[in-house]
Write a protein that binds this DNA or RNA. Structure first.
Lengths: 352, 352
DNA sequence: CTGTTAGCGCGTTCAG
DNA sequence: CTGAACGCGCTAACAG
């Protein structure tokens, strides 16, 4: 019965070359501090044996894991996939690994991931949950970078978008098409992000000289079903509107379904605009005009901030605002008209 | 300037209670092997100090990381999110962590993740990529469980579905509705999974006594656009069909778009059936009749196999076949008729 | 039941 | 430029 060759350690390499383990270690970390011919011999042995330094021993010794946790609110949301991609890109460029964690909207699970940092499973936490456990035992605050959602817990490096300005851009676009009665399906309102998007909607209407009819605004929870219910609610209440701005694409897609179910055409009868530009935006028919969040770039920026934070210590502060843009597809048109615009980014309408 | 309290180690706890580090270690691992009053004293100190054992030291010592990597073909596919949830559930139940890796259809990136296991970053690999690097240096084959896609690399514990039977169920359903000319948009054909689904389509047609017209089958790559192009291709070529079975939901959604763009109604003019039951299935209009893969359960089963594999060593073998079921929504109906069925699982049509 | 001791594999002094 | 020796924090063996 063949016995599997044991995984080589630094000692295996050293004895094969006839040098000490320190020399092997140096060759791998500071090649220029080793005479070229010893270095070559060592490298050859490393390749021959397929030696990979034991990451556990290495990390243990260095007191670092080269791993960060990306903690999201709900891992079932495809939005985070693109953010993850950006994080992963920036991470692997900097020699880091990424663990994605799911908070499931549960503060206890946030605490659990904080403990993973404290247990040195990971070096830091990229938080997209908007909240932090109220008190950490022993006053331990791990390296944290916040992305998109901002916990009230004090100054933290942050990457975000300008939600209000982006929403205002979207609604102003509808105003520009000739709409005046523009409904808004917002996110949960106590939340900062939802409130900011609602503010943008309000500002755009006011800028157009419109009174803001409170009946035009309905709350949702960012789900498909919330979009459907919002439309049903508006129509049942007899609220007149020719356009609808949803605080995310999923609710916009739900709105599309409900409008069609009630016999209304999009965009001829009602124009719809979403937010995020997720995978839903192009899967539905008509494809959604929406605000694109540069999700990859948000992730990459957050990871870059994490690298800096890890290097510079707890006093590091930064705020990165990434630009959004309006993507024009076919779900919005002048009142009563079919769609005309082809899909294209509207550079002129970019928001800071 | 206040200095942050140092992270407590097992020694801090020991000296505070006045016992040895071994006692603290035991209290945490084998509480019943410690006298109740010492145990209580230790636990109190642990709580007071907020002591969390250093996972690096622990894993290093135990030669295990309690972490597994879930390696997927393309992390941008929401399908894997649900699988991940299942893996994560089973993992945290067994005390494991999960790292999700993205192979980006690149064999080099598969090798990279194999190296992470060899470097002891993780204990094992759940593979959903369908391929394995051809040769591993030093003959190192990490603990691997395959899920849904099966690499040719020899016998591995595996969780899978019966693709052919599931496809046959879907197409038989269309036959039962009265369809005879049923087109198929397949996945990339050299791949086992795509071939199996195409086989199921073929078998169902043959069972219905239909000759299988090769013109009815078009290849795609599982993308939205592939679905659109397939429909355009069929219509441009003048192929007659009253129903279409796509090898996944994304292509089915693309087909929906293209059919509507060409003025055809779904399901009145063309019935459409998908595969997977991803988030797309209910986002589109009409919602898709499709084959549901129990994605969470697939992930959970794979993780459970991994736990066994890790416990029982490299000789462990297992094959788990998880059942699929046909989910009837509104994208398919008898030829020429509007949809009637409400959304409900069709238990009677479940496939093993 | 508890304490003492010896490493796990690596990086990093400190001598030579 | 290179080698010997120490220790990171913890667990497992062995003594007591």
């Amino acid at each position: 019965m063949p016995t599997r060759p044991p995984i080589p350690t630094i000692r295996t390499v050293a004895s094969r070359v006839g040098v000490s383990v320190a020399t092997v270690s140096r060759t791998l970390k500071n090649p220029d501090k080793v005479r070229p011919d010893t270095r070559d011999a060592v490298l050859r042995a490393v390749a021959d044996l397929g030696f990979v330094p034991n990451a556990q021993a290495r990390n243990f010794r260095r007191q670092a894991s080269d791993t960060v946790i990306l903690l999201v609110r709900d891992i079932g949301n495809p939005f985070y996939l693109d953010v993850y991609k950006g994080v992963e890109e920036a991470a692997s460029a900097a020699g880091y690994k990424v663990l994605m964690g799911d908070a499931r909207r549960d503060p206890a699970r946030v605490a659990l991931h904080v403990d993973m940092v404290r247990a040195r499973h990971a070096d830091g936490l990229i938080l997209m949950t908007g909240s932090l456990p109220p008190s950490l035992p022993g006053d331990f605050l791990p390296p944290i970078v916040a992305a998109l959602e901002y916990p009230a817990a004090g100054p933290l490096p942050l990457v975000r978008i300008d939600n209000a300005a982006a929403a205002e851009t979207a609604v102003s676009y509808l105003v520009g098409l000739g709409h005046r009665r523009i409904a808004h399906v917002s996110g949960p309102i106590p939340e900062v992000m939802s409130a900011a998007r609602a503010d943008g909607w309000r500002r755009a209407l006011e800028a157009a000289g419109e009174a803001v009819d409170p009946a035009l605004m309905v709350w949702g929870d960012f789900s498909l079903d919330a979009g459907r219910r919002a439309v049903d609610h508006l129509l049942d209440a007899g609220v007149r509107f020719t356009a609808l701005f949803a605080a995310n694409d999923e609710m916009a897609a739900g709105a599309l379904n409900a409008l069609r179910a009630r016999g209304l055409r999009v965009p001829e009868d009602v124009s719809v605009v979403g937010f995020d530009d997720t995978v839903f935006a192009t899967a539905v028919d008509p494809p959604l005009t929406t605000i694109r969040q540069p999700k990859r770039e948000i992730g990459a920026a957050a990871m870059r901030l994490m690298v800096q934070r890890l290097a510079e210590g707890p006093r590091f502060r930064a705020e990165v605002v990434v630009p959004t843009e309006l993507v024009i597809r076919r779900s919005a048109s002048p009142p009563g008209q079919p769609a005309r615009e082809a899909e294209r980014p509207a550079a002129a309408l970019a928001t800071p």
